[in-house]
Design a protein around this nucleic acid. Sequence first.
DNA 1: GTCGCGTCTGCAAACGATTGTAGCCGCTGC
DNA 2: GCAGCGGCTACAATCGTTTGCAGACGCGAC
Lengths: 338, 338
Amino acid sequence: MVTVHDVARVAGVSISTVSRALAAPERVAAATRARVQAAADALGYVPNRAASGLRAGRTSAVGLVVPDLENPYFASVTKGVQARARAAGLAVFVVDAEEDPHLEADLVASLAPQTDGLLLCSPRQDDAAVRDAAGRARVVLVNREVAGVPSVCTDHARGTELAIEHLRALGHARVAVVGGPERSWSQERRADGVRRAVERFDDLDVVELGAYRPHVDGGYSAADAAVATGATAVLAFNDLQALGLVRRLAGRGIRVPDDVSVVGCDDTFVAGLAATPLTTVRTDLRGMGATAVDLLADLLRPGNEPEAPRVVLPAELVVRASTADAPRVLVPSPAVAP
Amino acid sequence: MVTVHDVARVAGVSISTVSRALAAPERVAAATRARVQAAADALGYVPNRAASGLRAGRTSAVGLVVPDLENPYFASVTKGVQARARAAGLAVFVVDAEEDPHLEADLVASLAPQTDGLLLCSPRQDDAAVRDAAGRARVVLVNREVAGVPSVCTDHARGTELAIEHLRALGHARVAVVGGPERSWSQERRADGVRRAVERFDDLDVVELGAYRPHVDGGYSAADAAVATGATAVLAFNDLQALGLVRRLAGRGIRVPDDVSVVGCDDTFVAGLAATPLTTVRTDLRGMGATAVDLLADLLRPGNEPEAPRVVLPAELVVRASTADAPRVLVPSPAVAP
DNA sequence: GTCGCGTCTGCAAACGATTGTAGCCGCTGC
DNA sequence: GCAGCGGCTACAATCGTTTGCAGACGCGAC
């Protein structure tokens, strides 16, 4: 292993000069700096992170906690985080909390001391737990807002509104909205969007359906209930749910979009995967991850303490093949049990 | 921050005893150990990774390099790695190489000195580059084999054989096999499987199609060529390709599986996503990640140097809805340009 | 009673970087 | 000509942990 001492010897300076030449170039004479740089390059010197972290009190590493890496939503966020962190010279510890708030709290506790800060995707954790995390480490929330904690998230209310507006424009008179996990932050924001849409359009009937898992199986399970409402369009909690809906509908011989329109949410890469690509509400997920890193990097700059900025990313509608005009002849209303 | 000194003071021992009590319990009297443990718990002591890494010369962190986190294949592998590493007390740096061998080499070089070892998913890197990586750090390859480097991978040849066997059993007489990237290791293993199948079944016609991207668009692009061969069944390089195939076929009015059967590969979670769930060749991806961590952990145990074990995970066929009996009446052969 | 041995614990030196402080040098201005 | 100053660089302390070495202690055997 090549250390500052080796570089110092080759460059004919002391180790402190080496350190400064590399970390604070302006504090070293140009000629010296060049000699040090050359020596470092020649030897292939890479600073030992443990050593510099130990002395300087920072690790140049951040932690990213996500509920599920296999969820395309978090995969994209992770990708964005990773790319921006690399550019910023930060290493990223990624941990998968397996959608378990308990495990997540453990991970936060063990990650906090060995990183400079944490990026938290904690849709289900309650505010107190999030604040506790923010007490242990510098924290930036992703797709979640808690007072006093910096965050970056999507304008879900607006996105929901856009989706409903789109469906109404296609002539749908009754829309079913499938809910995600009850304690989820984004679920509540979407409910706001539904409320706003309902207030704006009095010719529109919106039926909200109970909590379903934000996965394919959740959509699969919600499909029958959605059809039973007599709705000709369904707005899912996310793209995975939407795909589950489509699958169940297909299984019952109900065609998408001919008989029923389906709108997903998030525009994860799976939205474009199916035979009938999903109309969905788009957010720039990688951008969200990148922004979160920026926020954290700002926080880490010495002397920046009290700010707790909230960034809200816009939501926009992407129309693909899963939505169409409302059918002329309505799907017959289901028989109601006497 | 609470340090060994604090714990030592509370427990009434020296810092070396604290260190030993926690790291090598058998070297400390039971009573002392208990006192130290109690003090550590009471204070919430967490060893400083930088400091212990510095002195002990290990970081207790490993790096995981994947080509694309948004690819469900690598998402699952990452998930498996992450879970097992946590159990083993290792932190995981995850980096996305953006499918760029050049960037990947850079990442390896920068990750090597700050980790105890690397897990490499490098399907496209050439052997020399992989060996170079293995020279810089302890390396375990995932889904790739290079002489002298420990690895864990899937029996792709067998998987391919199984898939073709399945299609033949359904009465398909001509099968198109869509190739992945040319320089990909698994692509070559699959070609072996095709060869074996061709040797076994002389009543079967297998047409191999040139290199297509291992993504949805690759499958989309390959679909027409596959149909043009007159094949009634198509074996894709992976699930994403298979979904792309299905989409293009649907666009041309060709039904899956009625007119053409499609088989995916890897059984990533997207295989079950579409309206017609994919028949696919399954490997335990999370298990592969976990095994890779085990291999690396073995390598890291002091005194284990020369072994370079190769683990080959079995492949098995999962039959879902995208394959069916070959159509009685063949799809008409395409007109050939004069 | 003493010796020897084994078990346990403390001392102190590392690990490799950062950083406050002090010294050196050369220049300017009086 | 000398004091003063500013720009660079070297010295040495320091971060929190691990670990080789040696001392202390207790116990059994002679």
